[in-house]
Write a protein that binds this DNA or RNA. Structure first.
Lengths: 202, 202
DNA sequence: CAGCTTCTGTAGCGATCGCTGCGGAAGTTG
DNA sequence: CAACTTCCGCAGCGATCGCTACAGAAGCTG
């Protein structure tokens, strides 16, 4: 159902699934999971509802694919940041990436992983939980990275890696909300710079 | 339509409008503006849809009333905080109030003003804009308070009140997202304390 | 070409959305 | 009590929700 299983037999798909996912991502990003109706989604994707359901299963599965794409695309700065040599470099890359991604011109403002389903109706609870897990996963990766920094002597030994990761993610979430509210890139970057001048705060 | 205009003539309202608003607030707080259906709202309020429309006009007007109630109730810590004698006291009261309100047991977690309509469908844009304005109003009040602190010599003269207010609100929004994601009160309070130990950061 | 598989456009499913017309019930004023 | 005003339960409005059955079109393999 979800993908062509026989491979090359039959009529091939008449649209680029990758580009359709990209367009769906922008709709979910702007309107949220429940705010994006299948009609708006399929219209933006340039395909019929039938094609969307044949290719992706249903709306929730489409969103899960979109979230994967978001993680490997606009949010990929996080994975790259974790590979920076020092905790300060990590934090710098995360905040710079957050500001850049949440205020990109001609893109929806804010963070898809934050604003897509902070609250939902009962039928959206699973997606809400999915995004809670998504954010928590990011937090855990940062925490582990900071723990490594402590072990390596990059951060003071009395540093609490969990608390420091909580501080950094809290700030990043706040930037996402500010961006979604229309606050400009320059102001957010200036603020992030001030935070980094006082690193590590905790 | 919205309220009894003749005063005492006719059959009096059969429910407590204040308590109905309180219950509606909890529903909007938990499910967001669009995630809270009129059926769930009226059921929680204990009244029929007809009564709700007669008393409050429509769903959007009900939400506006709820937002006023939220501002004067759970979010009243902000107005009180602005009256604290020093900028540090202001910031301390704001962060303490944010943590307390967003993690109150037996209440929805997070901040109604942040999570009710970060993203919406087209029909919810007005409420989304309303909450953007609500958050911006809070920011402006804090900025003006910090400007006063600079004028009074409470903050260093080179301090940028706008940037400092942006920093504080960003952190508060981040706390709200963390709380909505299930992060506990103690951890958030510990983090807020660390931020306040480094005040003013900017 | 024939025969097969898959895709896609139309049309519409049941359910829910926000909202309302209507008539009887309920409480107030003389 | 009668007359009046307002409230509220029932029922249902048109629109939209996520989703799907169906059949013909389209492209593959022989």
């Amino acid at each position: 159902m979800e993908k062509q299983q026989s491979g090359l037999i039959g009529r091939p798909r008449g649209f680029d699934a990758d580009e359709a996912l990209e367009r769906a991502m922008l709709v979910f990003w702007e309107h949220g999971y429940e705010g994006a109706s299948t009609a708006i989604l399929t219209n933006a994707m340039g395909i019929s509802t039938t094609s969307m359901y044949a290719a992706f299963g249903n709306k929730e599965k489409l969103f899960r694919r979109v979230l994967e794409r978001y993680t490997e695309g606009p949010s990929a700065y996080l994975a790259r940041a974790l590979e920076e040599p020092t905790a300060l470099h990590v934090a710098t890359a995360i905040l710079a990436g957050t500001v850049r991604t949440t205020t990109r011109p001609a893109h929806p403002h804010g963070c898809l992983g934050v604003q897509s389903a902070l609250t939902t109706s009962d039928s959206g609870q699973e997606v809400r939980d999915l995004l809670v897990a998504w954010r928590n996963n990011g937090y855990c990766c940062i925490q582990e990275r900071f723990q490594r920094a402590v072990d390596e002597g990059d951060l003071p030994p009395q540093t609490d890696p969990g608390l420091l990761a909580r501080y950094l993610t809290t700030f990043a979430y706040g930037i996402a909300v500010q961006a979604a509210s229309g606050v400009g890139r320059d102001e957010l970057r200036e603020m992030a710079d001030a935070v980094l001048r006082n690193w590590p705060l905790i």
